[in-house]
């Protein structure tokens, strides 16, 4: 099984010492995110997120299927993650690494279990027909902080997505093409975002040798390889925690975790505003184009 190349001893020492003194290799503040960019595709439901050198592409698709027998009133909602060898030589096709399992579980808990998407609204005919919404997530380039970037990409893509409109007349279900009826957005309840804190041990502050945990936000791959533990907090802008995961690693003071959670709320609000703004820009852009297209069709006839 190929492994990620480990950083050399010199790199390790340099980065750890710098972090202890409050500096990062790329000159960011300890709690600063890298340049974040979000682009939507021509079709509905495609989001391309770039966070520094990390790049994630998500595509949402919908199809009509039969619901699960034990949940006749719910639609189907799945998130599939794919970490291809393109992103990093450590990833192999068809063999999920631990990173991939943890990433997909985190997204599952953050978006699916927190009921961000109302699955009951995906039901068409109880027990017979429902929408199956599938999110495909591809990591195009891996330079750390996959979780935060992936979660943002999934949420943005789902909020951008429009599913075909349907109607029921008697026993017949009609699914309209985009030309017949404008597609409708999903019933979206709240937007959760993940914030990952990476811990780098402790430093003593003050005279009495009080220990303070050092943590970074939005780590690069190199920093991620050197961290002693991490904690991912998922939250929406209303201050509701959707999920907290600190999967083992070096112990951290409980007070630090609480401090991190309140900082996470602030960061989540920033991310939430960012996605809202990008979605508004996109819909403005689309609306103009949509009107023009309609006009040209009229003229051709």
């Amino acid at each position: 099984m190929p492994r990620e190349a480990e950083p050399s001893q010199n790199e390790k020492d340099f980065i750890l010492k710098a972090v202890r003194e409050g500096h990062r290799l790329d000159g960011r503040a300890l709690d600063q995110f890298r340049q974040l960019d979000l682009k939507f595709g021509d079709q509905y439901g495609i989001a391309d997120v770039t966070l520094g050198k990390t790049r994630i592409l998500t595509k949402v698709t919908a199809e009509v299927t039969v619901p699960y027998t034990d949940r006749p009133f719910d639609g189907i909602f799945t998130i599939t993650t794919e970490l291809s060898p393109m992103a990093s030589p450590a990833f192999e096709v068809n063999r999920p690494t631990e990173t991939e399992v943890l990433l997909s579980r985190l997204l599952e808990k953050t978006v699916r279990r927190s009921n961000a998407l109302d699955t009951e609204s995906l039901c068409l005919v109880a027990g017979q027909k429902c929408w199956s919404i599938r999110v495909d997530l591809h990591v195009l380039s891996h330079d750390g902080n996959l979780i935060d970037a992936s979660c943002l990409a999934v949420v943005a893509a789902l909020r951008h997505f429009r599913k075909p409109d349907t109607s029921m007349e008697g026993d017949t279900l009609t699914v309209y093409t985009p030309a017949e009826r404008e597609p409708v957005p999903l019933s979206w309840l709240h937007s959760p975002f993940c914030i990952t804190f990476s811990f780098f041990g402790t430093i003593s502050i003050g005279e009495d040798g009080e220990e303070k945990d050092i943590w970074l936000l939005d780590t690069t791959l190199l920093e991620e390889q050197l961290r002693v533990s991490s904690c991912t907090i998922s939250m929406n802008k209303h201050g509701e925690i959707c999920q907290v995961a600190k999967p083992g690693g070096a112990p951290v003071e409980a007070v630090t975790v609480l401090q991190c959670s309140s900082l996470a709320l602030q960061k989540v609000k920033d991310l939430s505003d960012f996605v809202d703004q990008k979605l508004a820009e996109d819909s403005k852009h689309r609306n103009k184009g949509g009107l023009l297209a309609e006009l040209s069709a009229e003229n051709a006839r």
Binding site: K109, R113, S114, N115, C231, M235, G239, E240, I241, C242, Q243, V244, A245, K246, P247, G248, G249, A250, P251, V252, E253, A254, V255, V257, L258, S261, S262, L265
Partner: peptide
């Protein structure tokens, strides 16, 4: 919550349900 012995040091923490941020401190304590 998993701690190292009787200290307040958090080794692992898993929360899978929606909960208000203000409620976290009491639950952790």
């Amino acid at each position: 919550l998993a701690t190292l012995g009787a200290t307040d040091k958090v080794v692992a923490m898993v929360c899978e349900s929606r909960v208000q941020l203000t409620r976290l401190e009491g639950m952790m304590a």
